[in-house]
Design a protein around this nucleic acid. Structure first.
Length: 369
RNA sequence: UAUGAUUUUUCUGGG
């Protein structure tokens, strides 16, 4: 059963929920961990509703969920936006005497922050004694993701006043808040502060700095920060490349792609997505095709984000047959894949293709926003 | 000393 649980956990973590379910169903006996691993998978990758159903189901079968199972289910609520259900679960947990568990308070703050209920998030963080730095990090992240950049920055500064010690994740969150429109000055100040604390070589913080400058089109600053990093990983390169692509500096991006491999770092999904985007942006069709070939050789043409980028690229080049082929080779589609293909047909005046594709999407009940 | 939980950097369409 331990071995079975590891398999469930492994499949659940990489999002192969049907496989996880299969292993689960094939086990003669389950324990709390089997259920929690499965719930954890559904909470992360969906369908989120399924996580909650599992929680019910395990209780029907006589298992008493522990805090791990509950916290996983709470995460499903956060990801799926089921805020009411999340509160209900939280109440159950508190009733069972779990107030002292920091996972709980942290998770609740995360739930509120992700759903945009910031006054509630603040309330919990101020009242719940068991919140730690993780809760603050979640709050800053939530504010940033809802584009409340100044509030996120203020929150970041508040941490010191509350006597909580920031960790490297906190600094990354602060920097991300400063990456929002028009806040780079604060980001620069924070950069100086980070240097004064000797934290600029931290991989997470260093990469976040490169990303902040890069996203804001401050290429010289991004490049300088990048050059100063002792240990450049694939994320560092990706952050720089994304900046170049954004500025249409495709030659520089290309040089990065070569140089990173010279230095022994393999491009990953994010690298290829940026490069494919670069090709579609400036109409570099021959290199785009070469990239398509490359990703196919390593099986990444089945990756959703890469596939979507390729569909978009071929649609822009007017090669709908190839766009369709990439689409067909994808094991799963999301609304972005569908709309990239549909608008590709539409742009070129292939009304039939657009309509047929739209009809198919409706047969699969895809919803567009 | 190896089965499960909360926060974090780079990433996809159209506008």
């Amino acid at each position: 059963i331990f071995l079975g649980n590891s398999f469930i956990g492994m499949y659940a973590k990489c999002g192969s929920l049907s496989e996880a379910r299969e292993v689960f169903d094939s086990l003669p006996k389950h324990d709390i961990v089997s259920w929690s691993a499965l719930i954890g998978g559904y909470s992360e990758h969906g369908p989120y509703q399924e996580a909650l159903e599992c929680l019910e189901e395990m209780q029907l079968q006589g298992f008493l969920p522990d805090t791990v199972a509950y916290v996983s289910a709470l995460r499903a609520c956060a990801n799926g936006g089921f805020i009411e259900k999340g509160l209900e679960l939280h109440d159950e947990l508190v009733k069972k005497g779990n107030e002292g568990n920091p996972f709980l308070g942290n998770n609740l703050v995360g739930l509120y922050a992700r759903c945009g209920s910031f006054s509630d998030a603040f309330k919990v963080i101020h009242m719940h004694s068991a919140c730690d730095i993780t809760a603050w990090n979640a709050l800053i992240t939530g504010l940033t993701e809802h584009a409340h950049f100044q509030q996120a920055i203020d929150c970041f500064k508040d941490i010191w006043r509350h006597g909580v010690s920031p960790d490297n994740i906190t600094f990354a969150c602060g920097l991300k808040a400063c990456s929002g429109v028009g806040r780079v000055h604060e980001g620069f100040e924070l950069h100086m502060h980070i240097i004064s604390r000797g934290l600029e070589q931290d991989t997470l913080i260093g990469n976040t700095l490169v990303g902040m400058y890069s996203r804001n089109g401050l290429i010289p600053e991004a490049l300088h920060t990048f050059d100063c990093l002792f240990n450049k990983d694939v994320v560092s390169w990706n952050a720089l490349i994304a900046g170049y692509v954004e500025q249409d500096m495709v030659n520089e991006a290309l040089q990065c792609l070569e140089q990173m491999q010279v230095e022994g770092i393999l491009p990953d999904v994010a690298t290829y997505v940026s490069m494919i985007k670069a090709c579609s942006d400036i109409g570099l069709d021959d290199f785009g095709v070469r990239l398509h070939l490359q990703v196919s050789q390593i099986g990444l043409n089945k990756d959703l984000t890469i596939g979507n980028a390729l569909i978009n690229m071929y649609a822009k080049f007017g090669v709908l047959s190839q766009a369709q082929r990439v689409f067909d080779e994808l094991p799963v589609h999301d609304p972005i894949s569908w709309s990239a293909l549909i608008s590709g047909y539409g742009e070129l005046g292939f009304v039939d293709g657009a309509l047929v594709t739209y009809m198919k999407s409706q047969e699969e009940s895809v919803s567009f926003d």
